Amino acid sequence: MAPNYKLTYFDAKGLLEPTRYLFAYAKVDYEDNRINRDDWPAMKKSMPFRSLPILEVDGHTIGESNAIGRFVAKRTNLYGHGDIEQAKVDSLVDFLEDIKYAGTGLISIFREQDEKKKQEMKEKFFNETLPDYMEVLEQHLQNNNGGKGFFVGSSPTWADFSIAVAVDRLEMFQPGYLSKYPLLSAHKARVEDLKGIKEWIAKRPKTAT
């Protein structure tokens, strides 16, 4: 009997979207349980790490977005072939965490209430902090098949989905930013055009984040 998967998160793309891409590309059914943020305080203490997202599978609950993504990537054969490729996939996904907390930190920027200060923080992040990280990603992509395919090996992995979602979020916050990085822009388009993911993007709920 096929396993039953249930993802629980807020009504957002956020931390869970790479996992949704994995399921979509692999054509694996799952329950996409989206909760109202007003309901979260009452649920929080029942969560394994008092955070979302979680994945429930056959009586087990898994927390933390990267652990969930890694588990689903393994289950769907989208984690790379062999331990070297898998280590490369992990390192790229971990590098996205470095980006998230680089400089002032994206989270701090988007939580800032003072609009003037927020704009100053945002400009510094996109103009001074982020370019080094984007150049590193482009170099990794360039090093694999000349940047015309995927980040690891010859087929899509969890790393590709995680990076495509991350750069899409950056483009959303700073429209036009990806034009400086043509390899990453083309990679994002390539991922979003994959069968399964293309259909998911067309039908997924429209959310702000």
Rank of each mutant, 00 (worst) to 15 (best):
P18Y: 10
R37M: 03
M47W: 05
F23V: 03
Q139F: 15
A67D: 00
H60R: 02
E171L: 06
D94G: 06
F126S: 08
I99Q: 02
Q139L: 15
S65G: 00
A42Q: 11
I35H: 13
E17I: 02
A102D: 12
Y9M: 07
D83C: 09
I62W: 00
W200A: 04
F161S: 00
Y79N: 14
S185W: 02
G14F: 06
E123K: 14
P205A: 09
D58P: 07
M47I: 02
K188M: 15
Y181R: 15
G59K: 08
A26M: 07
F49W: 03
A202W: 08
K13T: 01
H187M: 11
F71Y: 01
P156S: 11
E97T: 12
Y133H: 08
F71Q: 01
W200S: 05
K117A: 15
K124L: 12
N4A: 05
P205E: 09
S108P: 04
G80Y: 07
A202T: 03
E128S: 13
W158D: 00
E138Q: 12
F126Y: 13
S108I: 03
F173R: 09
G153E: 11
D39V: 02
D58F: 09
F110H: 04
R20I: 00
F150E: 05
N144A: 10
M172H: 12
I99E: 06
P53M: 07
K116S: 13
F150W: 14
Q113I: 10
L137G: 09
F161A: 01
F10L: 03
L137A: 12
F161V: 00
F110Q: 06
Q86F: 03
F126V: 08
I197R: 01
K117V: 12
G82N: 10
E138C: 13
G153A: 08
F71N: 02
P175M: 05
T61Y: 09
I201W: 04
A26E: 03
L52W: 06
A2L: 10
K203N: 02
G80S: 07
I109M: 10
N145M: 14
T157S: 11
E56I: 00
A166E: 11
V167K: 00
A73D: 04
P41C: 12
I109H: 09
D11G: 02
T19M: 00
E97G: 04
D38T: 05
K88C: 07
K148E: 13
R204H: 04
A2V: 09
S91M: 08
I107T: 14
P48Q: 00
S108L: 05
A24H: 00
E192P: 11
K6F: 03
F10W: 03
R34K: 05
M1I: 14
T157E: 06
A208Y: 02
P205S: 11
N145K: 15
F71M: 08
V72D: 01
D160P: 04
G103W: 05
F151E: 04
G105H: 02
G147M: 15
